[in-house]
Write a protein that binds this DNA or RNA. Structure first.
Lengths: 229, 229
DNA sequence: TGCTAATTTAAACGACCGTTTGAACTAGGA
DNA sequence: TCCTAGTTCAAACGGTCGTTTAAATTAGCA
């Protein structure tokens, strides 16, 4: 209703944009529940009521902010996939994995993207899962198809599991950009570039994706790890 | 001060326990910020002020509830490791991984353990990281040493990365117990037991941990970790 | 210029929050 | 028995929250 198709009478687009920008920043820094509309509208230098006027409610503002966060990632991933498929009719697993998991550009641009996601994961699954599925479905479908073509011997159900676990490792790297320091306090932070972690991630995940495992013949039995306890 | 060494005059232990139990449940279900002390004390059927009386503040109550959640996992992991090391002087990578990542018992006992962790991850890193490191350090140190012994060719720094990524996959399975449904809505939930996912996780992680990668011969495309950024 | 609707504003509303208070209650020790 | 310290209680405090309201302001259009 607010941003109708009719010409806007004031600089409402700038107000919207300013609120959205502050929302991405503050929701990422503090999380949804812990960020007040007053903090957002203060940071955006707009009136408190403008948030409800332009977005309806705080929850709808979160949706818009999440969309704003993820869209560049979806775009870049699709761009990379098209580029790989233009260069080769069958991209390698490693190339596909790297194109999917190398989010350095996003993690550098948006310092709080990982916290934003962490806060989303903390929402009830009834909230987070549909939003995640909706937001990432097209890109995941495209990558999964390419990965399936590159790994014809891995059954689809097994590949779905491995893709799922790959995402877990990727999120772990995005959130804790270096291994946690579980050891002596004397050991230095041992910080390196994010790219070093991405290289480790690609290696780790490619090995997990390409291993023979349960694929070959045995119908469902987990041939490798079998014995229950 | 509350639970001093002197004999308690009333049933204060039961009150404490009741509050702790409700806290684990509600913090897991709704998260810290979204759970009020009133909700906890209502569920525990005690007076509102009892929470502050017995635990000092809401934040200290969270600490106690987290400790309560994780202690059984630490205990069970150490029990398993000792058992493995009693059976064999050098347990296999797969056995170690399975002993570490098979949290079925905990995820069954405590339905909201994964959400509890998700909420912790959503806290600022300055809060979550020290707490995670403190809580899990002894067990991780023990497992890491055993894993290092089982994988003598993997440099310590590389193994730390892989351990880190393993934890990410494990958390992913704990949180989303099946692959997300990024595909057609017609595809059924495809639910199986949690053990099936754990088997997939073990396979995936063992492959990632044991792969030659950047360790032995060097070369391998991107000499990722050894050199600086 | 006046009309009109979109937008912005200050102020308030009602609700819920974590915490504190001080009195009431409980039971072991003298 | 009274005394005392641990525990529980109802009630309130000060504060922040999301949302709403109605007036003020803005800018396109006749």
């Amino acid at each position: 209703m607010a941003q109708a198709s009719r010409p806007l009478r004031a600089d409402s687009a700038a107000t919207r944009e300013s609120i959205l920008e502050a929302s991405v920043k503050l929701f990422g820094e503090r999380g949804y529940r812990n960020t007040s509309l007053r903090a957002i509208t203060d940071a955006a230098d707009v009136n408190l009521a403008a948030a409800n006027y332009h977005f309806g409610s705080k929850a709808q503002l979160l949706d818009a902010a999440f969309e704003r966060c993820i869209a560049p990632i979806n775009d870049e991933r699709m761009r990379r996939l098209r580029q790989l498929q233009a260069s080769s009719s069958s991209p390698s697993v490693e190339a596909l994995v790297r194109a999917f998991v190398d989010l350095e550009f996003a993690l550098t641009d948006n310092e709080h993207l990982d916290q934003f996601l962490a806060h989303l994961f903390a929402e009830p699954k009834s909230v987070s899962v549909p939003l995640l599925e909706k937001t990432f479905a097209p890109v995941v479908q495209a990558y999964f198809a390419a990965l399936h073509a590159a790994l014809p011997d891995v059954p689809v159900e097994v590949l779905r599991w491995r893709f799922h676990l790959m995402i877990g490792s990727m999120i772990q790297l995005a959130r804790f950009r270096h291994p946690l320091n579980f050891f002596q306090a004397d050991s230095p932070p041992a910080e390196g570039s994010l790219q070093a972690g991405i290289d480790q991630l690609v290696e780790f995940v490619v090995a997990g994706l390409t291993q023979p495992g349960t694929s070959g013949d045995g119908a469902s039995g987990d041939g490798a790890s079998g014995d229950g306890e």
